[in-house]
Structure formats: structure tokens, C-alpha cells
Design a protein around this nucleic acid. Sequence first.
DNA 1: CAGCATCCGCTTTGATACTG
DNA 2: CAGTATCAAAGCGGATGCTG
Lengths: 214, 214
Amino acid sequence: MKSYREYCAVAQALDVVGERWTMLIVRELLIQGPCRYTDLRNGLPGIATNLLAERLREMEKAGLIRREDAPPPVATTLFHLTDRGAELRPVVDALGRWGGPLVTRPIGDDEFRSHWLAMPLELHLSDHAPDRAPITIEIRAGDHPMLVETVDGKVRARPGRAEHPDAVLTGTGSQVLGLLLGHLDLAEAKRRGLQFEGDSEVLDRVRPRITETV
Amino acid sequence: MKSYREYCAVAQALDVVGERWTMLIVRELLIQGPCRYTDLRNGLPGIATNLLAERLREMEKAGLIRREDAPPPVATTLFHLTDRGAELRPVVDALGRWGGPLVTRPIGDDEFRSHWLAMPLELHLSDHAPDRAPITIEIRAGDHPMLVETVDGKVRARPGRAEHPDAVLTGTGSQVLGLLLGHLDLAEAKRRGLQFEGDSEVLDRVRPRITETV
DNA sequence: CAGCATCCGCTTTGATACTG
DNA sequence: CAGTATCAAAGCGGATGCTG
């Protein structure tokens, strides 16, 4: 991208991360950790493969990412965020908070990847009863199951299945988000097609308290 | 800009504010308040006039700004941020923090407008002696003079001159920023060409304490 | 002057095909 | 798996002109 050539921190930040796709590549690496090229392409539906390659080169030169050859048996290149790249988290978080109200509507024909849930869930949920036994919620939406776990007063989300989850949510991304972020109560979410099994009390334990305008 | 078509708050935020110039228009309106078309164009050196007009239309449709006919004697159109638009401040702040380290180098041939100083100064400075009499620093850098004032434990910057400022800084944008953000001590800043008049103790009163990595 | 619209050359993007 | 090559279409920057 052409530089703005302004002596202003905001403009110079945008010179580095303002180009199309760049912040979304950062998002992918923040959520998923080190990724293969193919993982990135799957997490960025619609990106042209030449553009992904080009952005990765630019981001490496800008010091945002580092490319590392994984040792066997993986034996492939992994793209890592550098420390400087990881410092973009506040920017991604701020964008995610601001964009929150835009994803309260149903999902339409937008693309969806289940790992994208990790960001809003970790941003808006927390464990209101950190002294009780930790809980696990399994989410089945999108391309692969996700686990939501309480740890240390916070909520962590990661891909995976649980042996004995306290609850299982099955539905679309917007149904799951609507229920967990508190826009929909359980009855309404079910009416819209969400399946819920398990202990409904876990919801009140993690959902945002003062209905933040999410 | 073409939509990413992803069901993700970050991507949908970028669908609205990710296009070239948009965040910088928000920056201008956050710093300057309601602006005329001409004010915006002056604060965005390098923007093509057709692009500014197009962005303003898009931003109005997206609910970020509102256009209002100022009453006489001004009698011109003023572009305001809506509440929703003003909620982008955390995004701009996060970008400004991340970009901070990029503007520690000298100014080179980048464009500079003195009102851009307001953002880093209000972001990084604060009044460490809020119980003492408020102070005023006048800054002469760039296109017009700025005032830095302590109020309520915080620091406010705005265009203007002071009758009896506690200090006057004259130099380039990078010299002024270097001194006030604490990368340069007074001696070093002077050696680089900054002129300082007044009480040098005001510096320690407002400069960041634990030299944050700005 | 303030607030645009038009035109034109150039760059960036997106879609697809192909390769070590 | 991890890219490169190609090409049409869209977006951008600069210059200029128009209207109240």
C-alpha cells in the first residue's frame, strides 16, 4: 500500500497494517497460534493465494511475523507472530468490540469458521464464580467443535471435544453467539433452532453481567 | 471496498472502517471536532478530493458521520462524528499506541500538522501533580501553535496561544514529541534544535513516568 | 472560496490455472 | 503443501472543471 507519508502514529500504524487482509492475518495468528499456509488460507475465505503470499512477505519484512521450519514429523513452514506482531492484540480487540453489534444479526450467507468464536467469547465472557469447580462447554457450530473452559476467572476457547462437558450447544454461529453473549435467552435461542444439552446454570456463570452493548 | 463476507466482528468492523483514508477521517474528526470539507482536506494531505467526497458519503451511509448545515454566520456544511463514529476512539487509540514507536525517528519529509500532536500528547501525558495550580505549555511546531494544559489530572491539547505560558517549545514535531514523551532529555532536545523557554519543571510534571515504550 | 464531479493513467485486487 | 503466473476488473491519485 502506498504510504500516507504523515508524521502521525495512527497513519504510520496504518502504513504497516492498514492494507486489505493484513489485520485478518494477525487475527488468525492470534487465535490459532502458529499456522501453516494452508491453515491461514482456510481461515481467510476469499483471499487470493497470491495475495496471501504477498502479505506474508510484507508482514515478515515489517517484523510482524516470522517464518519457521517446523521440525519433523511436521516438516512444514509455520508462520508465527513476532512479539511486535502480537502487540497488535489491543487493535484487534478494539475492532472486535466495535464490530460486536454488527454480528448480532443472523449469519446470512457470510462465511463462518468456528475458531472465530474464540475472540468474542474470550473478550466478552468471564467466570463469575472462579472459586467453584471449573466448567467446560462444548460448542458444535461451523467446521469443527470448540471448547469453552473457565480458568482463573477468565474464559478460554480452543478447538476440541470434551469427555463430559457441563453443556453442549449445537447450532449456527449466530445462535451460539446470541445465547452466550446474552442477546438471546435460552428459550428464544432454542426457538431459533439452537440445541442445548446439559446444565443451563453454566450460562449465567459466564455470560456478560451488565448486558454490555455487545 | 469489497466486503470480506465473514461472520466475525473484526472482519465486519473492517468492512466499515478498513478502507483507505476512512480511519484517518475519523482521526481528524476526533481531534478537531466538527470539520468543514476544507479542514478535512487540509488534515489529510495527499487525499484526492473525489476520494474524500466518496468516503464522506460512505461514512454517512454507514452511520459514522452526519452532515449538518452550520447556522449563519458560518453558513457552511460541517461534518460531525455520530455517537457510533465516536466509539471508534478505542480503535484509533490502539493504533496510535502501536504506532508510537514508529514516530520516534526524525520527521523526514513526512507531512505534519500540529493538531496531530493532540492525540499522542493526550494519550501518553498526564498531570502528576493535579493538586497544584494548572499549567500551560505553548507549542510552536508545524502550521499553527498549540496549547497543552493540565486539567483534572489529565492533559488536554488544543490549538491556540497562551498569554503567560509556563513554557514555550519551538521546533519540529519530532523534537517536541521526543522531549514531551521522554525519549529525549532537555539537553539532548536542545542539541537537536529545539528551543525551550520557561520553567523546565513542567516537563517532569506531565511526562510519562515509567518510560512506557512509546 | 466551499464542495464536489469527471477524466485518465497507474496500481491493487480477485479469480483461475499451474508448479516444485 | 506452499506457493508463482496471468489477466480482467476495480480502486486510487492527480489534474482539471463546474456550480453556488
